[in-house]
Nucleic acid binder design. Structure first.
Length: 163
DNA sequence: GCCAACGTTGGC
DNA sequence: GCCAACGTTGGC
């Protein structure tokens, strides 16, 4: 048993909807509401222990707030069946779910969020999916090199001049 | 199967 | 609020 994650991901959330602070308070949560096939397929690849960069979108500036860990592999997102739920999907038959979610648990909050404009200046993560033009996926794969760099950067408070 | 129209995402 | 990029829908 190692605490070293095997694979790495980035997951976006609007903090007004669900923030890293909320996750820290709750300890863990189910990641419901993903309604994009690519993002769903990526979640189905996740394994327990995988590392997650928690990204706050739709704020100024957006940024990476901290890290989480996958603690339950993909299972049907129950909100797709609930007519009163925000993410209800009328096309889905009860016996054939379309949408899945995973559970994640809180791991760490960076002293300061790493803002998107700073990420764009970092040659180490050039080519990162998040920085690609028109990138909208709410779940993205992250390489091990990107993970290592960003976690180290985040832990020292986004200070890109430190050694 | 093509593709125009429409809806959503999400940075700015 | 604007708008670019992308995904989805639906007519044909």
């Amino acid at each position: 048993m190692t605490d070293r994650p095997r694979r790495f991901w980035l997951m976006k959330s609007e903090p007004s909807d669900y923030s890293l602070d909320d996750l820290e308070r709750d300890g863990r949560t189910h990641w419901d509401g993903v309604r994009n096939f690519k993002a769903r397929n990526l979640m189905k690849e996740m394994e327990i222990g995988d590392g997650v960069l928690f990204y706050h979108s739709m704020k100024r500036p957006p940024g990476i707030a901290g890290t989480a860990r996958v603690c339950r592999t993909a299972y049907p997102d129950f909100t797709q069946f609930d007519p009163k739920a925000k993410y209800f999907d009328r096309r889905v038959k009860p016996d054939k779910p379309w949408w899945y979610m995973v559970d994640i648990e809180f791991v760490s909050r960076f002293p300061k969020e790493i803002p998107l404009p700073l990420l764009r200046k970092m040659p180490e993560i050039e080519g990162m999916a998040l920085l690609k033009r028109g990138q909208r996926l709410s779940v993205q794969p992250v390489t091990e090199a990107e993970w290592n760099f960003l976690v180290a950067l985040g832990q020292r408070g986004g200070d890109d001049t430190a050694s």
